[in-house]
Design a binder for these strands. Structure first.
Lengths: 292, 292
DNA sequence: TATACATATCACCAATACTGATGGTTATTA
DNA sequence: TAATAACCATCAGTATTGGTGATATGTATA
């Protein structure tokens, strides 16, 4: 049966077009390559190289198999980098809890980069209402969390402000509020408002309450759907509704009392007194600058 | 450096939860496995198994690396099946020339099945107007071809009837013809017709000519676009326009003289006096039943 | 406590992979 | 054309590796 070293000889020799060059590259003598490939050919019962010319070149059979042999070696490279990663103690998984409103466009590239830097570490994204993030961290069911700042009890977790997420007030184009040129607070009060709330009620739920009648939902996607169906108006993260506003599915309310977009502070949190591994430390650092 | 045999020991032992069982499966003695894995652990500078219990189980590090090791072995399996295929002389590539009108829904599954049966053989689909297929085969630039039957000169190729492709006459919903309840030939004559034609003019180009004014295009996709823009009416393969008819983008003309869909015969062709390999033979057989 | 079944270790043996020398072949250069 | 340099195949000898079988030890099960 063939072995990895023979596959290496096969691929290198094919790429370099020379057994001697391959030998130099792999740190062996020429005859070792010559024999190694001859043995591989015996094992596979196929001729891989055409030696009739000066430079050995792949036979048609060799060409067909080259990509497969290369694929095996690529997999061993993957294994090697994973071994490196595990060797320096990279975590097996990092669980990141966040509200889908906080899945900002800049997060994607960070996760991409993370995957390259920590091939042996998996990422689990846990989508939950912002208000429940802190609880997941407390219960050690998540390692890092992103949440809208909350003034309530914050024992057992370490949290740091990382920036603001701007919000627009939005409604359906057919909604009565859409017809007002400049909306003030009094205008808003009689119309039903949709507000985010998770399992746990916190003071955050209260922050944005303006209207008299409030309906709740536990995700911004749900709120968006409700607003689109004219059920009420809501504050929504700008990056979630930009597209819909452009497509005229939603109207951004021109608030007379809000000259720049209203925004919420965001905290990055993790369990207190818990050591972070390499991967978590890296990700923590990157997330610190998520909203810049 | 580790080798494939050690990876096999790693994966098998982990799956079986036993070095002895692994030894039996791999046809070695227990001590070989014990040493093999110990050496692997030395090479990787990591402990893969926890031997403190009765059944050896993977350490966290072992768990992280397991999938990678398995992936390497899976790649060797791929290599092995490719070696088998190349060993029995499977072709490196098969070039199938056809008109996009003949990319019928049943072709997809056949190609899928082909990929499984002949892993070392690549498929090249050459999309050209039906009338040019025969030429590609003659010039040996394709191995198999599908084309609408053509009564012209057919030297050097072997061709066989395999079935019919039904056509609908279609036009844009805003087209004058769309307003007629039952369209007869005389109604069609004054309206511009769009007909397929390739590089080579053949008698096929003439077959479907009905209207006085004819415009040409070299693909049904182009014709479809032209019909959608109201440039004329055309005969189109049913399977290409079903969707558009359903979406009211096209109207199927109710032809008084065509009570069942007009259809064209299709031939499967290949070069005469040329030996077919396994893969080509298999595909040839399957394509014979393509339109059943 | 006895049994059955694991794993680790060790000395020994067999298979293999590598080395270095040799000879033949093919381009390149004088 | 002759000399040179670079390449590959082959082979005998050696070093390395991997496998064997025996033994000691450990751990569940009855």
């Amino acid at each position: 049966m063939y072995n990895l070293e023979q596959l290496r000889m096969f691929v290198e020799s094919a790429e370099l077009g020379s057994f001697s060059a391959c030998a130099r590259k792999l740190g062996k003598v020429q005859s070792a390559i010559s024999q190694g490939i001859a043995n591989l050919e015996i094992d596979l019962n196929l001729q891989l190289f055409d030696r009739s010319t000066r430079k050995p070149s792949l036979t048609p059979e060799g060409k067909q198999l080259f990509a497969y042999a290369e694929a095996v070696l690529r997999q061993t490279e993957e294994l090697n980098t994973a071994v490196q990663a595990v060797g320096r103690g990279d975590e097996a998984i990092i669980r990141l809890a966040l509200d889908n409103a906080l899945f900002v466009p800049t997060l994607g590239p960070i996760l991409q980069e993370f995957g390259d830097a920590f091939p042996a570490t998996a990422i689990e994204i846990i989508y939950i209402p912002s208000t429940d993030v802190i609880n997941l961290i407390k219960k050690q069911r998540a390692d890092l969390g992103l949440m809208f700042s909350d003034l309530s009890f914050k024992q057992d977790v370490q949290l740091g402000f990382i920036g603001h997420v701007p919000f627009h007030a939005v409604c359906n184009p057919a909604h009565p509020l859409a017809k007002i040129d400049s909306v003030n607070v009094v205008d808003l009060i009689p119309h039903r408002q949709l507000v985010l709330r998770g399992e746990i009620a916190t003071d955050f739920d209260q922050v944005a309450k303006i209207s008299a009648e409030i309906w709740w939902a536990n995700s911004f996607h749900a709120i968006e759907e409700m607003v689109k169906q004219g059920i009420g108006w809501a504050y929504m993260p700008c990056h979630l509704v930009e597209e819909a506003i452009k497509n005229k599915e939603l109207i951004q309310l021109p608030l007379s009392f809000d000259h720049k977009p209203w925004s919420l502070s965001v905290d990055l949190i993790r369990a207190k007194n818990q050591r972070m591994g390499h991967a978590q430390g890296w990700l923590y650092g990157k997330l610190t600058h998520l909203l810049e």
